[in-house]
Design a binder for these strands. Structure first.
Lengths: 205, 205
DNA sequence: CACAATTATGAGCAATCACTCAGGTCTTGA
DNA sequence: TCAAGACCTGAGTGATTGCTCATAATTGTG
């Protein structure tokens, strides 16, 4: 425990209830502000104002602005993997069509509540090597899982499973980016149906 | 020609050769700087430095930073539509598989030289309503063309051509975002092959 | 109640950045 | 050759922003 350690972490851990409450309020406010103004224009003062606290308090819980972004991204990633693990733990459907449907729906649901925030998070992730690496890790894990699935499922007839797995994952991700950004968002059900159809016909050969 | 018009355009049009040359250098430098540092961190001073000119000169050719971004995006959009028009003017292949191959290759080639810049341009486009509208217009035109194609081609058997067209366009766009961002970019040929296969099998039903 | 630890405050600092302007240098044309 | 206009220069300005710190308020503990 070096005594001259840099102030990379803010103070100590919260001890009182109101502290943890303030932390939550900061994160919620940051999510709103970032989603609305983007990362660069989402100033820390604005976040504090929206959270109903002073700017000083904000910096007692986060060492800097980037740390807030990191925490938001971490939470999303953790939520996503938790949901995925839960699905993978149970029994999967037999047909690949139904398997794809499960995954596509999972992806859609995970991003349906705040697409703008999610878009921002993924855009700003490259700002930090650590975040970029973390996102990359999750993505690589998904690609690996998909490749296993493609290689072992009897219905699947694609040859280049490595490329196919990347293509499938990228296509599902795309669901997100087309559900949001557009001012005229596509209907979630229809998108799901068509995407599942496309993926299924593709891997069946 | 109102005399009190705001200084939205910088000075007059360039008259001498060196002026046009300087303009080009600014745009080239901006492309590099934006691609490397992103829009927010790509300062105008850095652009001027990279272009080998003074910051004052930069502001004789562009009224503000956003105008540089706008010009870069406009050029990309114009180049892209020009290439598309040229392809659409000539005779298209018979089979949809070959048609898709033509379009996918077009998209890949258009974005192969500077993927980072392109990513940045599309991310920052929402900063301006005008740019957003311009991008939206191009995209809508592509979707419309695709829908026509899907409805008139004998091999195509999808029912919901509206959704299918959007899905096809989004999938092709995806080629870009997966060719670049990743530190381990996918092989262009393989991606092209698999993507064409996926789209073809999808629309054939 | 006292008093120490924890949490909250917000004016202000230092740094950064887009952009200006007063004045230079170069090119052109007569 | 020599003005007049075109082009270039770069230190500086005003505004913004991330963040600090001295101080105050609140809470837990005996």
């Amino acid at each position: 425990m070096p005594s001259d350690q840099r102030r990379i972490q803010p103070r100590k851990q919260p001890r009182q209830v109101r502290a943890e409450l303030t932390r939550q309020r900061i994160l919620t406010a940051a999510a709103h502000v970032f989603a609305e103004h983007g990362y660069a224009a989402g100033t820390t003062n604005r976040i504090a104002e929206r959270a109903g606290i002073s700017i000083g308090s904000l910096y007692q819980y986060f060492p800097n602005k980037d740390a807030i972004l990191a925490e938001l991204l971490t939470r999303h990633l953790d939520d996503g993997t938790a949901a995925a693990v839960q699905v993978l733990t149970g029994p999967l459907p037999e047909s690949i069509e139904d398997v794809f449907r499960v995954f596509v729906r999972l992806a859609v649901e995970a991003h349906l509540d705040d697409p703008h925030l999610l878009r921002m998070l993924l855009e700003e992730a490259p700002r930090s090597n650590e975040l970029l690496e973390r996102v990359g890790k999750v993505k690589r894990a998904m690609v690996e899982h998909t490749r296993d699935l493609l290689e072992n499922h009897p219905e699947v007839r694609v040859a280049d499973t490595a490329t196919a797995a990347r293509l499938v994952i990228a296509t599902v991700e795309l669901a997100v980016h087309d559900l949001l950004a557009e001012p005229d968002p596509i209907d979630a059900r229809r998108l799901e149906d068509e995407m599942v159809a496309m993926l299924t016909r593709y891997v069946r050969g």
